[in-house]
Amino acid sequence: MNIFRLTADMTHLMSVIVLLLKIHTIKSCAGISLKTQELYAIVFTCRYLDIFTDFISFYNTIMKVIFLWTSFSIVWYMRYHKIVRRSYDKDQDTFRHVFLMLPCLVLALLINERFTFKEVMWTFSFYLEAVAILPQLVLLQRTRNIDNLTGQYIFLLGAYRALYILNWIYRYVTEPNYVHWIPWMSGLVQTLLYGDFFYYYFLSWKNNVKLQLPA
């Protein structure tokens, strides 16, 4: 474990807490894409298939449980909670996320470290997470008013992957023959997809104005 990875995991945890706070306290999921939340639930399910077979550490297991539990809770809130679901904008959240899943699955079957079920699922989860934010970014373009919590949620979600890249650089430098191209490339694509959001988020912070993405 290194400081980059610990900070990254805490940032990821913070993003989930911010979203759950928004949904649980003000009972609203306005501006949040259910498609992205469903993709994240799939990402964690496919990535943590080893939760019962490979014990790494208490930290690792506890964090896996937290990410699985919170991602499914958020999907449940947005789909079935009688108040929260009313603020879900299904007419705007129309990204066909199945078109993201199929190419990622095919790619995982073709490019992986080991052709076993768990490993292909693990690889699929990285390719899918790289593009999982797309429905959310499309929804942001469409909904004009982005509230602070939504902006903070997306910022933290993007920042965690950027911090993981620092972790991967650190591990590559300090650990002999630590090479994992699949997470590295996926993580790089994922972070780059947040590029313009980070730019406009920084501008809104610097000019102290509301976050607005260009149409």
């Binding site: 080893d50 690792n60 080991r114």
Partner: peptide, 10 residues
Amino acid sequence: DVKPEPHDEL
């Protein structure tokens, strides 16, 4: 065959 080391990152 040697068991590959598990993925240790989240």
